[in-house]
């Protein structure tokens, strides 16, 4: 690729990303009432998306090779447990990450 072609390629990635981020705001402008169906989606999608993101983070974990997903499972348990107990975002995240690092560096 020439320099210009590389810049166009980067530009296309920028364009694609910006499009996916701005599109809903352009389709449903502030002045007009947003359809009820869309407002419903705005309410029910986030919990589903958070679930999707959790699974997305784990997409490369193999249950049949290496550590078989044990460190991930245990550490997620730690995050969930800590959060139920203290409900402090940073405590849950730090605890789970520390547990994971310990497991992959020392145990497995």
């Amino acid at each position: 690729m020439t320099f210009a072609e590389q810049m166009i390629t980067i530009g296309m990635v920028v364009l694609g990303t910006v499009l996916t981020r701005f599109l809903p705001f352009l389709i449903f402008p502030a002045g007009k009432p947003t359809p009820r169906y869309v407002r419903y989606l705005g309410k029910v999608l986030p919990p589903a998306v958070f679930g999707l993101l959790v699974v997305y983070c784990l997409k490369n974990v193999s249950l049949f090779a290496g550590s078989r997903g044990v460190p991930e499972l245990v550490s997620i348990g730690v995050v969930a447990g800590l959060h139920l107990w203290r409900r402090q975002m940073l405590v849950s995240i730090a605890g789970g990450t520390a547990c994971y690092m310990l497991l992959v560096q020392v145990v497995f």
Partner: peptide, 11 residues
């Protein structure tokens, strides 16, 4: 991952 799990829990 830990952050998204915590956010999922919070929700």
């Amino acid at each position: 991952t830990a952050m998204f799990v915590a956010i999922f829990m919070e929700q």
